[in-house]
């Protein structure tokens, strides 16, 4: 059984974000990390490997050369090999183009499970897993709080309106998991050393059988303006007020805005 975990390198949550003049993100100037939600997908895959259910875990990323750092960090947590698709034609790729590239690379790697995080930190569309499933013509098991594998089926535990469901589909599948799978492990020093010797291959578009033409310029969407959020009036504060007074003032504030 083989899992390929798709991971994205993103600016650290704390890092300042900067837009370039062309309104794409200036990714060179900020500190980067593995998309935090992808670490849960890594953890899920490694738990299945620890349990002996899975015998090969590989990582796949699309991004600039620099994204190989994220792949090395993942390899330091565990797993066997990593693949980076990087190509000048991909700068400014949107979720559609990302899905197109990942789908082509996954066709080549042919895992039983293509596993993803539930969303990327910087886009937050949660669209790549479903789009990859559609492009590869495979079932989608999304938002799993846990992934389980048996001989020929995958199952996820997924929240519903009042509890949870177990959803099943025949392998191979595309799946995504949430932060409920359990806290991601840290890389050990031994893991970091071992990661340096694990294979990391870099592919251009042609290596996965795609042409720049098929990617329609790398995006079907374009950002036409980027602005800071509308400035709000400064925060009003109620401090050092006895509870009754605080309650009255909050109620006044709500009433003035017709909220009660």
């Amino acid at each position: 059984m083989k899992i390929v975990v798709c991971i994205k390198q993103v600016p650290a949550t704390t890092a300042d974000k900067r837009y370039e003049a062309d309104l794409t993100l200036d990714r060179a100037s900020v500190e980067t990390v593995i998309n935090p939600l992808d670490e849960y997908a890594i953890e899920q895959a490694l738990r299945l490997a620890d349990a002996g259910t899975v015998d090969e875990v590989a990582y796949l990323s699309m991004g600039p050369e620099q994204a190989s750092e994220a792949l090395r960090r993942a390899l330091a947590m565990g797993g066997d090999a990593a693949y980076l698709v990087t190509d000048a034609a991909l700068s400014g790729a949107d979720e559609w183009a990302t899905a197109k590239v990942l789908a082509a690379a996954l066709d080549k790697l042919a895992p039983d499970v293509a596993l993803m995080g539930m969303a990327s930190d910087d886009a937050r569309g949660s669209l790549v897993p479903g789009a990859v499933a559609a492009m590869r013509n495979l079932p989608l098991l999304s938002y799993g709080a846990e992934l389980r594998l048996e001989d020929s089926v995958a199952r996820i535990r997924r929240l519903n309106a009042s509890g949870h469901d177990i959803v099943e589909a025949p392998l191979p599948v595309v799946a995504s998991v949430t932060d409920q799978v359990g806290e991601p492990r840290y890389a050990s020093l031994k893991g970091i050393m071992a990661a340096k010797r694990k294979p990391l291959e870099t592919w251009a578009l042609s290596d996965i059988g795609l042409s720049a033409d098929e990617l329609q310029g790398g995006a079907l969407t374009k950002v036409t303006s980027a602005e800071p959020p509308q400035a709000k009036p400064p925060t009003e504060r109620i401090e050092n007020a006895p509870p009754e007074e605080a309650a009255t003032r909050i109620a006044d504030w709500l009433a003035a805005r017709k909220l009660i």
Partner: peptide, 8 residues
Amino acid sequence: VITASQPV
């Protein structure tokens, strides 16, 4: 940031 986007 608040971005405005359009189809290409």
